[in-house]
Design a protein around this nucleic acid. Structure first.
Lengths: 225, 225
DNA sequence: GGGTGCCGTGAGGAAGTCGTGAAAAGCGCG
DNA sequence: CGCGCTTTTCACGACTTCCTCACGGCACCC
């Protein structure tokens, strides 16, 4: 759980950021002026700071200076000032990034990820899906069944990946065929069944009665975690 | 003296950046396409990369991927694309910053300083990887096998480095080829196999039955410590 | 009950991939 | 210019994977 300190004097902006950040799993601490920002920074030691420059009490640049005297925490500056002088000043004082308002929320979140990623290099992203006694590491492409590594062929992996990326969603045979072979039509309808059987044989405890790699008759397939 | 690799296909932009960067005391290496960019990156190991996304040969995002599989060097992306999708993609692939053209040169320089500032503190640590009776010093580029120093050619070393930087992770042949040669060259699929064979011959106790430099048929290769 | 789809499974040949030896093409250097 | 080292290409068995076909089972409908 990553703690992020958000400093902005506009309540609406604060709310919007709070909403989006908590939705992404961040733990959000808010402050509306420089004084409380520095206080809360000292108390919580957040992993990253999002800082608006236009604060009522202290100049935002001074806030950066104050934080940087005692910490290397990533600072992402948010500002309505578009002039390059402000940007240069903020960045040279130790800010890690500078985003001008109005901004795209997705971009801000991406920049936030980039900033935090640098702070904790060991905690790289790792997408792991687990169900029953199977563990699938989508990043390193490794599959463990009952603790033993399982070898999947390219097509088997491709198919499993598609299913795992859309848990509980039904994927039509047509979609799967397009993804696997690029040909939507005129293919042997048993093609998919062979690979589903392979996957079930390798991953399901009882391949005859699958509980996670499900068939939707007449429609397609579905992965149930 | 900080080395910076500047990649852009427009000669005028390249000139402008070269001028401003050398004036600030940087040592500038330039490249006009993805292939030579990756080549020069491997040769010079710059302290920071300025990368335009719109390259003639390879997609800029693939260049980021290739660099990131083997290095944590700061990457500052330069692009004419203003959509947030491109920004998010580039940043999540490992880029450190994203600047849209046209840009203010002073701001770019400030962002460059911010990016290099972060990169420097971690540069001192010594990374050594050991497995079986092999010891690899990633800093001094020395390899010891059963206590005896082993000589690796540039390509062999590059390949080993890529694998060792991503332990247990599967790296696709495509990724490796882009990193080694700059192109996902499909003309000669045996290229990689020769170098894997060389590495195994030099490092594996039993080259015929590799236990650390593993092949994932149809997918790529994996380093198992 | 028989017909009709659709699904699961086994088998086997075609096609592709891997590892290896060997040889041509570059490349740096004296 | 020749020499050694490296990179790159080619060729060939051994092996794996892909894909098609054929057959049996189950559910549903007429």
């Amino acid at each position: 759980m990553t703690e992020v300190l958000v400093v902005d004097d506009e309540p609406s902006m604060l709310r919007a950021l709070h909403l989006n950040l908590t939705a992404r799993g961040y733990q959000v601490i808010t402050a509306e002026d420089g004084t409380s920002a520095l206080n809360k920074f000292g108390l919580h030691e957040p992993a990253v700071v999002v800082l608006d420059l236009g604060l009522p009490d202290i100049d935002g640049l001074d806030v950066i200076r104050a934080i940087r005297t005692g910490s290397q925490v990533p600072i992402l500056v948010l500002s309505a000032r578009v002039g390059s002088n402000d940007k240069v000043a903020a960045l040279d004082l130790g800010a890690d990034d500078y985003v001008t308002k109005p901004f795209d929320m997705n971009e801000l979140l991406a920049r936030l990820r980039a900033a935090t990623r640098r702070g904790s290099p060991g905690a790289g992203r790792r997408k792991v899906v687990a169900f029953a006694d199977v563990t699938v590491d989508l990043d390193s492409k490794q599959v463990l069944h009952a603790g033993e590594p399982v070898h999947l062929t390219r097509t088997e992996w491709h198919l499993l990946e598609l299913l795992l990326h859309n848990p509980e969603k039904l994927i039509t045979s047509r979609q799967l065929l397009i993804a696997l072979r690029g040909q939507p039509d005129h293919t042997d309808p048993s093609y998919l069944r062979i690979y589903m059987a392979q996957l079930r044989k390798k991953l399901e405890p009882d391949p005859a009665r699958p509980k996670h790699l499900l068939t939707e008759p007449g429609m397609g397939y579905r992965f149930q975690p």
